[in-house]
Computed example of a mutant assay.
Amino acid sequence: MKSFKADYVFPVSADPIKNGIVTVDDHGKVISVTEENSPPPNVKVETLSGVIVPGFINTHCHTELSHLKDKIEPGTGLISFIKEIMALRASDPEAIEAASLAADQEMYDNGIVAVGDISNTPGTAGMKADSALYYHTFVEILGFVPERAEEVFNAALATAEQFKPQPVSVTAHAPYTVSKELFKLIKKYSDNNDNLLSIHNQECEDENKFYRYKLGGFIDLYKHLNINIDFFKPQARNSLQSVIPLLTNKQKILMVHNTCTNLKDIYFIKRFDRKINWCFCPNANLYIEKRLPKVELFVNQDLNITLGTDSLASNTKLCILSEMRTLQQHFPSLSLEMLLQWGTINGAEFLGVDSTKGTIEAGKTPGLNLLTGLDGFKLTDDTKVKRLV
């Protein structure tokens, strides 16, 4: 057994413990969480300066795009970013595999213990099978042409088979890339199978403009892709409001990015029986669109929030601490306790691993991180994360 004592222990499931002591066995299983006046018997205690927190949960990543790091110019907007991804993503399979392995190691070193990872191909299946991290793979379906709905859905199911027995599900990419017919196939499948969902949502104003009026940059994107969209009729409402009725009420759903989600969207969702969770990837939002979601809006509505890194195509690092720091810099009212909840237990609950991860409690194997360089309970530019277990 090993015991770690720090200035504070943040179990997340309970109040912070000053001079707390966490004891784990050789497998990282928490034996006890105690105060300094009740140390575990017959175990040497390692004293550390900083704050001990649970391992981080990254609910949105694209490890298969890791080879695109530094390849796409930041700040050009989502539609330009999509075009660049499509032009550059094809590469030597060995290069893609090497980059995904390096991304996996980077997340491990940055204290991440579980990942919700988007995949379009089975190329990362081997990496995930051998990883020390827990992965849930979301096989992403893209198909805006109604006639191809069944074809692309079946192809996604075939890809998902190649990740098994690892946790895997099939999911829609985004409202602007999935036809109503394809959404219905995903709903039918999700109604009858264990199929967690993760959907890119409202990353730019053009997405809402396209759904409301059939105007904006997505018209040019479809022309660029030689996709005839004569069949699509404007919905007179935002994209999120248009697709919510098409989603299952049997599965948890993660809405990712939410850069342009507004209060009307949230009120609309509350009228429906849907298990919606919300993921923020602030560094990617700044990288692509140079803007952030209306975070306080989500906090005030007491919504379930998680954190993600997105991919190295849209981020300089895969680090949940970095995402937390960015949020606190732009929204100073966010407390460390709240940010930790978003970056640990909320993500664990969404991924269904909260029985073992997300909080520091006896019997769990959450991973332990040491945060140093804080100003009281505020993250700073000097705050670093070190993985203890």
Results as ranks from 00 to 15, higher is better:
K83G: 04
M324T: 06
K317Q: 15
R237K: 15
A114F: 03
L197D: 01
D92C: 06
L297C: 04
Y267W: 12
V9R: 02
L297P: 00
G143T: 04
V12G: 00
I199W: 03
D230F: 07
L240C: 09
D104C: 04
M107F: 06
L88N: 07
S335I: 01
C319R: 07
D310C: 09
N285I: 05
A149Q: 01
H173M: 11
F298N: 06
Y211P: 00
S49M: 02
I244E: 05
K317M: 14
S355T: 12
Y211A: 12
K250S: 14
E64N: 04
V33N: 03
A129L: 13
M324Y: 05
L142E: 13
A348F: 00
I229P: 08
F377I: 08
V295I: 11
G363I: 03
C281K: 07
N195Y: 02
F183Q: 03
T316R: 14
V385M: 07
S322G: 13
N283G: 06
L88F: 09
A87D: 15
T261C: 10
D191G: 10
G126T: 09
Q235W: 01
S322D: 15
E35M: 05
Q241S: 13
T171G: 07
Y176Q: 08
G352C: 03
V30C: 02
G308D: 02
L48G: 07
